[in-house]
Each structure stands twice: as structure tokens, then as C-alpha cells.
Design a protein around this nucleic acid. Structure first.
Lengths: 226, 226
DNA sequence: GCTTCACTCAAACGCTTGTTTTAAACGTTT
DNA sequence: AAACGTTTAAAACAAGCGTTTGAGTGAAGC
């Protein structure tokens, strides 16, 4: 290859078109001819460069998830572990809030990135790429959230740290996974302006309360918090 | 038709096989031949009885969601609105707990019903059936949860009642939507025995704390609850 | 006993799919 | 100028798809 992507950017155009289509319609409902048409290249180009539709799909996931932490960190939604351990209570709460805001922006914001749709599809129909997605995204996301939770509620048992982290992430991710039902119920075409900001604030507040109660609850006192 | 379902139960067998396959693999990845094979009927039987694969799919969704509230109520996860309004605080908390337990059992329990998988697929690739699913399931589920929340935290503004209900449902549904990633991360093949019980208890406790804090939080005091 | 009817069956239809093939061009490097 | 990697074009491939066909089945109705 003379340049990183041929001369006319065929490889790049193929990846871009395939990313969009796989995110929009999923693997099965996307055809090689759809991809070639949207990329503006010949049908045979896909197989020339990527061998097969499946390999192209795996390339797409690889490329998308390779850049996600850069995006997250650039917007302040991710911080090194050592930094988190140095934060005070108010800063931790602020980090949680920012993190939720960034996550929601990426998932359902006015310009959502493709990770959300692709991940949702992988959770519905897992492929060979699932291990990569777990190790490259889900696992780091969980670990970092657990670290924030552990700092905010130091008395929690490890299993409760994990459960609280799952509760936090679950609340946020829900707005992507349930989006069609949610929007239809509200009669909306898309989430309104400022929606992610308000939901991030709600989830942060709700979760701080949840952590406080779980942290104060002893075994058998499940219904505490009255 | 001689009997409610022919003589050999072809219609019933088709619906059963199609329900399983659509839940397992989705609409696109399920073929008419797969369905006929699993149902043990001739390939043409599907089109004879249901007209088209799409009509069969809609029939499947209709049948599955027609019975979901019966199942939910039978297990104590749903109560008439008038009853809810009569419950005391401890009873409401117990209802919330039971409701979460039943929901989780249906979503990820040892014998999960098909609604979970089918709904997840509709949220990923909505079809004509989406309005039915919203009006028959999502909307009643939201209204009843909001009623419980409203009784548990009477000072909440309506918008916060809705958000708290979404937080509660989101935490539970997350374990279905993110199941493949979650299981792979833990190295599990399925959720372990007692998992739904523990998670229902956690989500109930976490949510009671969340509601308490959101209820006590005034505008601008987002980070309260320390 | 004959027709009627709902139903079943194997076979085939026309179409789309992912993939491959063949040929010819293009621009860059050697 | 020759060689090379890249791209296009058009066509074809086998396989699989949803759907249709038409003959055949056996019980029900008259």
C-alpha cells in the first residue's frame, strides 16, 4: 500500500459507511451492496480490502472501540485512578455527574457516537467481538466507576461497590437501550435539548442517595432508608 | 377450521417455534425453514396459516405480550392502583421489592420468559409492533411504578416521580440488556442461583435511598445527600 | 357416495445474498 | 517503459431466502 489508505480513501470510506450501516441496521440487515453504495465504491472493493463482510464488521468494531476512551477522557468523563483517589467528596460527586453527562451525550446526545448502537447490537446478538468489547470498554468502565463508588462510600463491601456501580451505569445506559420505547411513549422524535443534562443530574443525585443507604444498611435491614 | 387449531396443532406449534426462534435470533436471522423445522411442520404451513413471516412475527409479539400482565400479577409483582394507594410505607417497600424480584425472574431468571428477549430486540430494531408494546406493557409498567414511587416519596414533583421510576426500571432491565457483556465479564454461563433475589434486594434498597435524596433535594442542590 | 373443506406436502418460483471472476484502467514507483 | 498496488466495471456463481403452486389427504356435510 503506497499510502495509509490507497489514493482515493477507499478503505476509509468503506469503514465509515460500514460503521454507519452496521450501527443503523445491524449485521444481518446490512448488505455488502448497501455498504458499497454508501461508500461510493465498487462492490468488489469490500472483499478486496477486508476479505469478507464479517471481517469488515470486526474491523468496524475494533476501530470504533479503539477511540472511545480518548473521547471519554477528552470530555472529562474519565480520570486516571491515582487522580480519583486524591479527590475530595464534592469533587467525586462532580466527577460522577460529569461522567454521567458525558456518557449520556455519547449514548443519546444530539450527536451520538456509534458505540452506543453497536454495543447495543452486540448485547442483543453477540459476535466474536464481544471479548474485545468487554476488555476494552465494559471492564475499564466498571473498574473506574467502582473506584469512584468506593471513594464516595468507603464503608461498602466489595460486592456492594460493584452493585452500586451497576446501578449507576444501568440507569444511564437504559436511556439508550430503551430509547425507541421511551421516545414513542413520550411522543418525541428525539430526546429534547438539555435532556442529558437533566438526566445526568437526576442519576447523580439518585445514586448518591442509593449509595448512602446501601452503605448504611446492615444485613437483614433491606428496607431501611425510611 | 375444524377445531380452534386444526387437528395436529400446527398453528400452535408454529407460534411456539417462531416465538423461541425470534427471541433467540431475531427476525432477520430466523428463516421460515428454521421455524418449520422446529415446529415439525411443512414449510408451506407458515404461509398458509399466517400469510407471511412478518405477520407471523407480529402474531408472536401479540400473543406474548397479551399474557404478560397475567403472569406478573399472579406472582404478586403487580397490584391494582386502588390497592397501592391503600398501602403503608413498609408494604410499599415490600411491593417494590417483590415487583423487582418478579421482573428480574422474568427477565433473567432460571426460566426466563420470552418477553425480555423480544422486547430487547424491538428496542434494537423497532417494528410495527412497537406501539402495541408501548401501550400494552411499557406504559402500564411505568404508570404503576410511578404510583408506587409517588406513594413512597409524596413530596416529589411529577417529573421527579417519572425519573425515579425510570431509575428503578432501568436498574432492573439493565441486567437483561447487558447480559452477554455482564456474563462474559464475570466468566459465567448464566446468572447464578439466588442472583435475582440479591439484585432485587439491592435495587430496592438503592432506590429507596435515591428517592429519599431526590425528594429532599431542592433545585441547585444537586450534590446533596452527603 | 360424493362433494366440500381445511389442511399438508414436495417441488419449484423468482429474487437477493455474499462472494468470485475476468478484464481493463489508473497513478506511482522502480 | 515496465512493474506494481489499487480501483472500477460488469458479470456470474452457488446458496439461501420468502413465497407460491398444485396435487393430495382425510374427515365433515349433505
Amino acid at each position: 500500500m503506497r499510502s495509509p489508505d490507497g489514493r482515493s480513501g477507499t478503505r476509509r470510506r468503506l469503514i465509515a459507511a460500514a460503521s454507519e450501516l452496521f450501527a443503523e441496521r445491524g449485521f444481518h440487515a446490512t448488505t455488502a451492496r448497501d455498504i458499497a453504495r454508501r461508500a461510493g465504491v465498487n462492490l468488489a472493493a469490500g472483499h478486496y480490502h477486508y476479505g469478507s463482510k464479517k471481517d469488515l464488521y470486526l474491523e468496524v468494531l475494533q476501530a470504533q472501540f479503539a477511540q472511545i476512551w480518548t473521547t471519554l477522557a477528552r470530555r472529562g468523563g474519565s480520570r486516571p485512578a491515582a487522580e480519583i483517589d486524591r479527590l475530595g467528596r464534592r469533587e467525586l460527586a462532580a466527577l460522577l455527574h460529569t461522567r454521567l453527562q458525558v456518557m449520556l451525550d455519547m449514548l443519546i446526545g444530539p450527536r451520538p457516537v456509534l458505540h452506543g448502537a453497536l454495543m447495543q447490537r452486540e448485547m442483543t446478538d453477540p459476535s466474536q467481538a464481544l471479548p474485545m468489547i468487554v476488555s476494552e470498554f465494559i471492564d475499564p468502565m466498571m473498574r473506574e466507576t467502582e473506584r469512584i463508588v468506593a471513594r464516595l462510600a468507603p464503608r461498602l463491601r466489595p460486592r456492594d461497590i460493584e452493585r452500586c456501580a451497576l446501578s449507576i451505569i444501568g440507569q444511564a445506559v437504559f436511556y439508550r437501550f430503551a430509547m425507541p420505547g421511551f421516545l414513542h411513549r413520550k411522543g418525541w422524535k428525539r430526546y429534547p435539548h438539555g435532556f442529558t443534562r437533566e438526566m445526568a443530574a437526576h442519576i447523580a443525585a439518585f445514586s448518591l442517595g442509593g449509595m448512602a443507604v446501601v452503605s448504611a444498611t446492615r444485613k437483614g435491614k433491606v428496607y431501611a432508608g425510611g
